[in-house]
Nucleic acid binder design. Structure first.
Length: 449
RNA sequence: GUGGCUGUAGCUCAGUUGGUUAGAGCGCCAGAUUGUGGAUCUGGAGGUCGCGGGUUCAAGCCCCGUCAGCCACCCCA
């Protein structure tokens, strides 16, 4: 009698998370939370599902096509959010009277995009957004940069570069060149400079933006500016002289780089890249992208920018803002290829060996005692052989094992075994918690994640 | 969404011009070792060869479809 079994499977781009990677994921979330909170950002949450009209047309045509959209049981046209920024715009418009402005929020949550999958690109992934709304101040733009820097380095990366630009500078150039009405196509072409090279960009500029050879040359000449932020800005200043938009952009960038340096951000982690533009239509000012120098192909792991009109479709009140988003799952894919994910599959450092079923109550009790002392402890459920249990402990990545049988109970002591070093000490129960704390502190710093 | 590559045990892979009962290493389980993990040895379990259809006397191998993964576009975290 064979009953038909359901094939266990997951949808394209949707994944299960086993303990070791899931622990790495949670560690990243904790780091993000800690860094965001250190700057005064408060947590919020919003529903996964929104009315489709809330989401449609906010991120450009591509985002619209990628929406997971359906009709709910009540006949409503609904869709899963494809990012956290648009729901935040809706949220801000809806609750602005209850929020003190400027309002700083963080939001760690999954989003869904029905696009083709790759390494580091999934249809369900977690974004870690933080935004400051209700202020035009460049100080908010600068703090956004600092948060990105602190976050990526807190995760454990040394070799990364935050690339910054300002849409105002780009717009200034396009105004001068008479291309401002085609800015979306021009910027999209420009954004690919690093990928397809100058000739590729020139071709796309002519084809998709209808740019003349002269216009195209000017754009490319501009995009190829390299050097220290200060020297690039000085050059730009000459080119954009008299254009108010461009000059404002330059001033804000100059201030950003000056203050970032003043605040102690290492110069090599920061670059002015006038070719980055970002595809999302809603950005109007500063733009950020962050690349890992050892894995640039995975794409930007933390991106964002300033948007001065995000909530305009939901309220007549002006809500300018600036923020960025850490791509947690993309980052995790990179960390996995770097071997930065710990193999440990247990959040508890201590395993109590179930030596003798007669003493089970003692094992259960010592577990509770240690937990009360702040030590996460697992008690093995079966009275299997000690070798078996130690092998289990070894596989799961426990740091310490606690062993006691007839002999120990008769003497009122426990064997504390350090599985990493292979050493074992005999201790009275009163000394256990302290000894365990000491042993755990000696542990080499866990790799990030 | 478009094009290309790939899919054999839990993992990494081998499998001859299509030929009969599909293999290896690692891992897993059991034992050697009934109070001590990572080593060694012995034994064992585990596969409708991603799934469905077709060609053929015969398909893991050839053809079509489908699902999934990777790469390039597109876009982006």
């Amino acid at each position: 009698m064979n009953r038909p079994l359901i094939i266990p499977r997951t949808l394209k781009g949707f994944r299960d998370h086993l303990p070791a990677p899931a622990m790495a994921r949670e560690a990243l979330l904790e780091t993000a939370r800690r860094v965001y909170r250190s700057y005064g950002f408060s947590p919020i949450d919003t529903p996964a599902l929104e009315y489709t009209e809330v989401l449609l047309g906010k991120g450009g045509d591509e985002s619209d096509k990628q929406l997971f959209r359906f009709t709910d049981q009540g006949g409503r046209d609904v869709a899963l959010r494809f990012d956290l920024t648009v729901p935040f715009a809706r949220f801000a418009a809806q609750h602005i009277n209850d929020l003190a402005v400027p309002f700083k929020r963080y939001h760690l949550a999954p989003v869904w995009r029905g696009e083709n999958t790759h390494r580091g690109r999934y249809r369900e992934f977690i974004q870690c957004d933080f935004d400051t709304i209700g202020t035009d101040s460049n100080a908010a733009d600068i703090e956004t940069l600092l948060v990105i820097h602190d976050l990526v380095s807190a995760i454990g990366f040394e070799r990364f570069r935050i690339q910054v630009n300002n849409r105002l500078v780009l717009n200034g150039l396009l105004e001068i060149l008479g291309l401002i009405d085609r800015s979306s196509a021009v910027l999209r072409a420009l954004d690919k400079l690093h990928k397809i090279g100058a000739e590729g960009v020139a071709a796309e500029l002519a084809e998709r933006a209808g740019a003349s050879p002269e216009q195209s040359d000017r754009v490319l000449e501009f995009a190829r500016l390299t050097g220290s932020p200060e020297s690039v800005l000085t050059t730009l200043e000459g080119w954009l002289k008299g254009n108010a938009t461009g000059e404002l952009g330059i001033a804000r960038l100059r201030e950003l780089f000056t203050v970032a340096q003043h605040a102690g951000i290492p110069a090599e982690r920061l670059a002015l890249d006038v070719s980055i533009a970002r595809g999302l239509d809603y950005y109007t000012g500063t733009i950020y992208e962050t690349f890992l120098l050892d894995d640039p192909k995975i794409g930007s792991i933390c991106s964002g920018g300033r948007y001065d009109n995000l909530a305009e479709l939901f309220t007549s009140q002006k809500l300018p803002g600036v923020g960025a988003s850490l791509g947690l799952d993309r980052l995790l894919a990179a960390m996995e290829s770097f071997g930065m994910i710990s193999a440990s599959a247990t959040p508890a450092p201590v395993l109590v060996v179930h030596f003798d079923s007669q003493h089970m109550p003692e094992y259960i009790r010592i577990g509770r005692t240690l937990r009360a002392a702040g030590i996460a402890t697992e008690v093995f459920p079966d009275a299997k052989g000690v070798g078996k249990q130690l092998k289990y402990a070894d596989r799961k990545g426990f740091a310490l094992a606690l062993i006691a049988g007839e002999t120990e109970f008769a003497q009122g002591v426990w064997q504390l075994k350090d599985l990493r070093a292979g050493t074992q000490t005999t201790l009275p129960e009163a000394d256990l918690a302290q000894a365990i704390h000491a042993a755990l502190q000696q542990a080499p710093a866990k790799p990030a994640g």
